[in-house]
Design a protein around this nucleic acid. Structure first.
Lengths: 127, 127
DNA sequence: CCGAATCCATGCGGATACTG
DNA sequence: CAGTATCCGCATGGATTCGG
């Protein structure tokens, strides 16, 4: 996470600090359970609100809207509204969102690969 | 995240459900800001408690111990205690931990790569 | 130095109800 | 269906203290 340091002008150093604090902010936004599960759920598809809700096990209406807003704000998710009645709103990953999704995929792979290791480690720790 | 479904015996299906719920549990443990930042901070090094604290910007004593325990329990971090006085405790990533670290690295790369996109998207959204 | 325990505020997050 | 708003319990997480 740490940005490479080198001695530069005060302005350059200030820019580095700004970029670093922004990076940490983005990381905090994105590195949370619900956000990552939503990104994973969307995948290559475009889904309606209720459909996302159906894909993400156990998420509440409120958490879903909050996280979708946040992802939209950061440009990871595109939101398109169809002015029909009843309303129809679709969500899909943008290019940055799909890029992040790749890393989430590897994280899921990791989870499944080490399931056994982890389960065993837990038994050793708990007992 | 969803495990592939196929029709099998009731026992096999039960096993699948167990593995899936375990996977979600692990994912919830690991997919949080502090855990990922700690893993990133450890990297290839082995650090003492205070050193990790120094590396992870803004983490409190309590959060650090809690997350280190959790990571130890899941077998991502190894904890070795030297019975000296004052005590010396060192933390280092295990093989599963280092594997996960690789994906965290790519996540950090992603953050820096899309910093500009995201900053711009935010301006558009907020204004 | 390391960690457990306690106290306490705040904000997360669920449930519900209401608008378009 | 989608989104916002309100209420509120409860867990999260910070600060502090004590013990080893």
């Amino acid at each position: 996470m740490v940005t490479k340091q080198f001695s530069g002008s005060p302005e350059e150093q200030a820019d580095l600090r700004r970029a670093d604090s922004l990076a940490r902010e983005i990381f905090s936004d994105v590195a949370n359970k619900w956000a990552l599960l939503i990104i994973e759920a969307l995948g290559e598809r475009t889904l309606r609100f209720v459909e996302v809700r159906g894909e993400v096990e156990g998420i509440s209406h409120k958490m879903l809207t909050q996280n979708l807003r946040m992802l939209e704000r950061n440009g990871l998710v595109e939101r398109t509204v169809y002015p029909t009645v009843p309303p129809r709103v679709e969500y899909t990953l943008t290019e940055p969102g799909r890029a992040l999704r790749k890393t989430v995929d590897t994280m899921c792979d990791w989870t499944h690969r080490y399931l056994g290791h982890i389960e065993e480690s837990r038994r050793g720790f708990d007992g």
